[in-house]
Simulated scan of single mutants.
Amino acid sequence: MKAWSANAFPIPVVAVGAGSQPAEDEDFDYLPMPSGMDTFAPPRLPDQIDPAARATAVATLEGLLAAMRAWSFGSAGHPVVDLGGLDSTSLALINDALGQGEVSARVDGSPALRIQETVFAGIWRVIETDAAGRRLADRIEACAMPAEVAARSRAAARAALTPPPPPVGVMNAPAVLAELLHAVDKHRAGSAAHIVNLTLLPMNPADLTWLVEVLGVGPTVILSRGYGNCRITATALANTWWVQYFNSADTLILNTIEVTALPDVAPAAADDFADSIARLAEWTAALCEA
Rank of each mutant, 00 (worst) to 15 (best):
A160S: 15
G122H: 02
V16L: 11
E179A: 07
S88F: 05
T256M: 08
P167L: 11
W4G: 03
F73C: 00
V16M: 10
A67K: 05
A173F: 01
A53W: 04
A285E: 15
D207S: 04
L45D: 03
S191V: 10
L45P: 00
E179N: 10
A249I: 06
V196W: 06
A70T: 11
S75T: 15
T209F: 09
Y227T: 12
L180G: 00
E213M: 14
D271M: 09
L287H: 00
R54W: 01
N229W: 07
A151I: 12
A121I: 06
R69Q: 14
A238P: 01
T209L: 14
G19P: 08
P51L: 08
F273H: 13
L200Q: 14
A270H: 12
V13K: 02
V196M: 10
G99H: 01
L287M: 06
C230D: 12
D50N: 14
L83N: 02
A70N: 14
P167S: 13
A155T: 13
F246K: 04
R69H: 10
R44L: 14
E117V: 07
P51A: 10
V196A: 12
L200V: 09
A53R: 00
L31V: 14
G190P: 02
A183V: 01
L45I: 09
P202Q: 13
L64A: 02
D25G: 12
V80K: 07
I49D: 03
I257C: 01
I94E: 04
E213A: 15
F28Y: 03
G17I: 04
R231I: 13
A286N: 13
L252K: 01
L201H: 01
D50Q: 10
I123N: 00
N197D: 14
L161W: 02
G19S: 09
G17M: 00
G36F: 08
T260M: 15
V259F: 01
P205D: 00
V168I: 15
L177Y: 05
V243W: 02
V103H: 02
T60G: 01
A15E: 12
E102N: 13
T129Y: 01
H78F: 13
N229Q: 05
V16T: 10
A53G: 06
V259L: 06
T199M: 04
V126K: 01
A147W: 05
E148C: 15
P22M: 03
L136R: 08
T199N: 03
A286W: 12
G77Q: 03
V81S: 06
R134P: 03
D185Q: 11
T235R: 04
V119F: 03
